[in-house]
Simulated assay, not measured.
Amino acid sequence: MKKILLLLTVYLLSVPAFAQSDDVGKFIDDILLIAGKFSAPAADGAGIQASAGWFSSASALEKWDFRFSLHGNALMVPSKKKSFTLNNSELQLLEIQGVESASLPTAFGGVSNDVLVGNINFMGQDIPVDFDAIDGIGRDYIPHAFAQVAVGVGAGTEITLRAMPKVTIDDVTASTYGLGVVHNLSQYFNPYNFERSFQVAIGVAYSKLNVEYEFEPQGAQGIVLLDQINVDADLFMAELIASKNFGIFEPFGAVGLMNSSFDYTFGGTGDYLSEVNTQVNKLEDSNFQFKGDLGFNLHFDRFRLSATGTVGEFFNANLGLHVRI
């Protein structure tokens, strides 16, 4: 990401003089293409991880009953999500030095030794461009923890609030919060002798995720110095849930659809900071994904232990400890 910031800064130092340069337009298009391929797997993974752990039963709390929960997530990163193939034929101005194509890291990948090069023709002069491919974080799984509070509001309906305060690891700060609602559908089927131990419900949830990346200032004093990127994600989910109670043991499953959208904003100083954030709007994205949940609960009086596997573009494992108040 630092490489993208530096290249955008080079472009913005000459605004608006660069505005009429075809080469600069091609250069920016190439950077956004590479940035999109770099960040797309992380966006998909965030959607899967944010959708996990909302509901582990189709049975809703009784009116004004409360349940407090602590959850731990682990998003597993498959090898195919750690890299992407880039061909010179996809690029307009840049090219990969020495080869026609290369496997470059995504946000989940590791370190790359590949170099991107090119020349920008501006006012009769060639401005050389030479930078390393962007390095990823190099992880096989992404941990994520949060707390939830649920309350029954009657009519087979339960409302859940989720929150994780800001947590900083190295130079990355993340926080999340959200709201979920589950409504039991089996209550309408009882006249048709549906088993009361078998429950069906529909659940919807909204999550807000904020991630801040801090880095050493990049750019020129007084013009633009970039030192942070903020990523704001809005994540929506709807799913159909089924569970069956066997006393202490309650298996459950769910199928659903998610929509995630991402907004990027750079932080820093300088007269051209607003121009940076205008250009980076091209990186904003929205994505639909299907998902499935499969898991079980173990009931111990007021306590419940849940284990859930969420499958979509990624696999996410979730463990939850719940206490009814």
Score class of each variant (00 low, 15 high):
residue 235 L to E: 05
residue 215 F to V: 11
residue 224 V to I: 15
residue 249 F to W: 12
residue 244 K to V: 05
residue 166 K to M: 06
residue 266 F to S: 06
residue 242 A to T: 01
residue 25 G to Q: 00
residue 310 T to V: 12
residue 92 Q to I: 01
residue 120 I to S: 00
residue 11 Y to W: 09
residue 126 D to R: 15
residue 234 D to Y: 08
residue 32 L to W: 06
residue 85 T to L: 04
residue 209 L to E: 11
residue 14 S to W: 01
residue 215 F to R: 09
residue 116 L to P: 02
residue 47 G to R: 10
residue 45 G to P: 06
residue 115 V to E: 06
residue 167 V to F: 12
residue 214 E to M: 12
residue 199 Q to S: 08
residue 83 S to Q: 06
residue 130 D to C: 14
residue 154 G to I: 02
residue 236 F to H: 15
residue 98 G to H: 00
residue 301 D to F: 00
residue 172 V to Q: 15
residue 29 D to Q: 10
residue 268 G to Q: 04
residue 318 N to T: 15
residue 166 K to Q: 15
residue 141 Y to R: 09
residue 56 S to D: 13
residue 295 G to T: 05
residue 198 F to Q: 04
residue 223 I to D: 05
residue 72 G to Q: 12
residue 235 L to T: 08
residue 205 A to F: 02
residue 203 G to V: 03
residue 323 V to R: 03
residue 238 A to F: 05
residue 104 L to P: 00
residue 212 E to M: 11
residue 199 Q to H: 13
residue 156 G to H: 04
residue 155 A to M: 09
residue 268 G to S: 10
residue 64 W to Y: 11
residue 19 A to C: 01
residue 266 F to H: 08
residue 241 I to M: 09
residue 296 F to M: 14
residue 264 Y to N: 04
residue 118 G to Q: 06
residue 153 V to W: 03
residue 80 K to C: 00
residue 18 F to Y: 12
residue 6 L to V: 14
residue 168 T to R: 12
residue 261 S to D: 08
residue 291 K to V: 04
residue 108 F to R: 05
residue 302 R to K: 15
residue 155 A to Q: 09
residue 148 Q to C: 09
residue 133 A to Y: 09
residue 109 G to L: 04
residue 221 Q to W: 10
residue 316 N to G: 15
residue 296 F to K: 03
residue 214 E to T: 15
residue 285 D to K: 05
residue 133 A to R: 07
residue 19 A to T: 07
residue 60 A to M: 14
residue 232 D to C: 01
residue 323 V to S: 10
residue 171 D to Y: 12
residue 221 Q to F: 13
residue 2 K to G: 07
residue 9 T to G: 00
residue 136 G to P: 02
residue 222 G to Y: 07
residue 213 Y to H: 07
residue 123 M to Y: 10
residue 196 R to I: 08
residue 131 F to W: 05
residue 311 V to P: 02
residue 130 D to Q: 15
residue 170 D to T: 12
residue 187 Q to W: 09
residue 267 G to C: 06
residue 321 L to E: 09
residue 211 V to R: 00
residue 9 T to L: 03
residue 209 L to F: 05
residue 195 E to Y: 07
residue 174 A to S: 15
residue 304 R to M: 02
residue 276 V to F: 14
residue 47 G to Q: 08
residue 263 D to S: 01
residue 35 A to I: 00
residue 234 D to W: 12
residue 294 L to N: 05
residue 109 G to I: 01
residue 291 K to P: 00
residue 300 F to E: 06
residue 308 T to G: 05
residue 138 G to M: 10
residue 277 N to K: 07
residue 168 T to Y: 13
residue 143 P to D: 08
residue 104 L to Y: 01
residue 43 A to R: 00
residue 308 T to M: 08
residue 324 R to S: 03
